[in-house]
Amino acid sequence: MSKNILRTINLYKKYSDDYVLNNINISIKEGDIYGLIGLNGAGKSSLIRLITGLTAPTNGSIELFDGKSQNLSIRKRMGAIVESPALIPSMTASENLEVHRLVKGIPGKESIKHKLSLVGLKDTKRKKVKQFSLGMKQRLGLALALLGDPELLILDEPTNGLDPVGVIEFRELIKKLNRERGITILISSHMLSELSQLANRFGILHKGRLVEEISIKELNEKCKQHLLIKVDNVNRAATILENELKTNEFEVKHDGTIKLYALLDEVRQVSQSLTNNGLIIEQMTPMGKDLESYFTSIVGSSNNG
């Protein structure tokens, strides 16, 4: 079983009388790409600020790297972009990296060239950061975060301001870092469709509370387009689907319903086969949604609750 890289335990953050984070318990396993989803003001950035030590929690604790040590220096194993990349505008890309290299005490300057090359900024040479586009600044922010080869990378809305091509390139780079270097990544975004292509686990934050923590597998299962069928004899219905309709793309659930993932455009044929075999159909409903609809439904129900 992979170890916890990050775990928050009953985390609270209060400003004046308002709790911006309320009893947050999340856990991120080694190798995860964890997507933090939430509307503006949901508490994503506040949570990231607590994790990165920019602010202190009102209550609760944060365990990093399996909770082995709460020493400050453990944060050297992390890299982060919080809110927007923090850069010195009057310096070049490599000078900005040099400042951070010196702070971290990383020997040699090769790491600077390497990181600039990794994020596609090796040709910026003497160009000052103030002349960079927003996308270039985001890339440089990522290079800064990657300096020192962190085990945990925390990215707060990293695709803000990137054009569509930039978003795709950024996504591929994140995937590559996770796949090839095994970097665990916590990424927050309001671009849910983007996160759904990147993360393997999600935490949905709403009004400072963690509404749901869900894996991509569970999410796909919940969001996958299917026909929800409820009949009076579920075993017989399963046999008919296999033998007569020649599909095994269905699941028999514990509640006696069937989730049929195939033949979605042939609802009439499915219903006809079942009724022709004497089954009584109590329900046959097309189900499934994308991440955004799922998120909206979760947040909506949370609002109603």
């Binding site: 030590g53 920019l54 944060r75 809110e83 923090a86 850069l87 010195i88 971290k104």
Partner: peptide
Amino acid sequence: SNDFTTGVIRNTILSGTS
């Protein structure tokens, strides 16, 4: 002040320095 304005002070804190 510029370190606060540009947020560069954040990077230093994030690097795990007290």
